[in-house]
């Protein structure tokens, strides 16, 4: 097997793992902070709980989307890697 292909595979797998691993840290911390603050606010003002909850959901989705972007990059690297496809098609030719 060609060594170039092996290196492409190694780089893709490491890249995907690092993308998900590092990309998960930021959103996790941010969601924790948002939840903490919302729970504190809910405990202080139980009347406003429904407004706080709906705002929390929306902001959670906004925060989560950064993690989703990282996941998407990882998925592209593993399942439909353009560099891998290019290398494979060149070798077959």
């Amino acid at each position: 097997m060609d060594m170039g292909l092996v290196w492409i595979a190694v780089a893709s797998i490491i890249g995907a793992s690092v993308a998900v691993g590092l990309g998960g840290i930021g959103p996790a911390l941010a969601e924790g902070m948002a939840t903490k603050q919302t729970l504190a606010s809910m405990a202080q003002q139980p009347d406003e709980a429904s407004t706080l909850r709906s705002t929390l959901f929306v902001s959670m989705a906004m925060l989560e989307s950064t993690a989703i972007y990282a996941l998407l990059v990882a998925m592209i690297l593993i399942f439909s890697n353009p560099f891998w496809n290019y290398a494979v098609s060149n070798i077959v030719r």
Binding site: E64, I68, L71, L72, M75
Partner: peptide, 16 residues
């Protein structure tokens, strides 16, 4: 773009 990718990523990752 983020509107599209947010929905896609969430549902796709759940199924996967």
């Amino acid at each position: 773009v983020s509107l599209a990718i947010r929905l896609y990523g969430n549902i796709m990752s759940g199924g996967l």
